[in-house]
Write a protein that binds this DNA or RNA. Structure first.
Lengths: 145, 145
DNA sequence: GTACGAACTCAAGTCAACTTGAGGTCAAGG
DNA sequence: CCTTGACCTCAAGTTGACTTGAGTTCGTAC
């Protein structure tokens, strides 16, 4: 069973132009053409799920391709995958703290939060994560975002 | 005690140009100038922490400004803040699942993951989140990155 | 008092991830 | 057979978040 781009778009919630773009960069593949029209297998719906998932985590399309690219075979060595999982672990912890802070901010009646001790405690116990290296060494691609 | 831009940059791990940019867009403020040089209060170190935090969660600088902008006073109504916190909750759940999947991928010996039942189960149980609306209605700014 | 280095301004460039637009193709329905 | 609507290509534009570069201005140390 094949789908054409409009169906994939509707089912996956991804615009046709984005799908063409993903194909251009080799993140997904169409199985054939019907005249001009790309035909996709239902498989791509799962792949698109993974892609959306990776994006949510702030991975670039390049990283996502490395993790699941081409039929879910990771191109990356175990070691690197574990590293990404660890990065996610840290991120989950930070997000949890941020969520709590946000809820606090929503409720706390203090006029300016910088004076609220609960708030400051929440901030102060957060690990420094977004590093910027003063000179040399390439950076990670941004979040994205 | 005031800091000049180089010190803030070093302590916060944010480049001087990014700091100027944040000031331009009104996300942070310098307390004064010493000659040409911006002088920052130590306060901005905390603000920068919040900013990095928000970015990690995929919020845009605009959203971050709304949540904590100007001395941590949120400009946003409680309701919206709770909404953001809920968005974070969902995100945390997804990230947790993604992390587990990633660890599985790193270990599972299956030649192609799309055939591994554990893998498929992990993917299939993920909620659809990255919606694209076929026509009308403005979208949220992307992740970021 | 002069040289140094750290900051400054402002315009332009960059990168990822798409979107938009103009103009073309094609298969199925009437 | 002809129209229509969904799809196509390719180049160019957009947005957010910065960075880079050229040319300028200072405060501090010597």
């Amino acid at each position: 069973m094949v789908l054409d781009i409009g169906e994939v778009s509707a089912k996956a919630g991804v615009s046709p132009s984005a799908l063409r773009y993903y194909e251009d960069i080799g993140l997904i593949a169409s199985v054939a053409r019907h005249g001009l029209r790309r035909q996709f297998s239902a498989e791509v719906l799962l792949q698109l799920r993974l892609i959306a998932w990776g994006q949510l985590a702030g991975f670039s399309l390049g990283e996502i391709a490395g993790m699941f690219g081409r039929n879910g075979k990771p191109d990356l060595p175990r070691e690197v995958l574990h590293e990404k999982a660890d990065r996610l672990d840290r991120q989950i912890r930070e997000l949890t703290a941020l969520r709590d802070t946000l809820r606090h901010v929503a409720e706390c009646p203090a006029p300016t939060h910088m004076e609220c001790p609960t708030f400051r405690r929440l901030i102060e116990t957060t690990g420094q994560s977004g590093r910027w290296q003063p000179r040399g060494q390439k950076r990670q691609p941004p979040l994205r975002r």
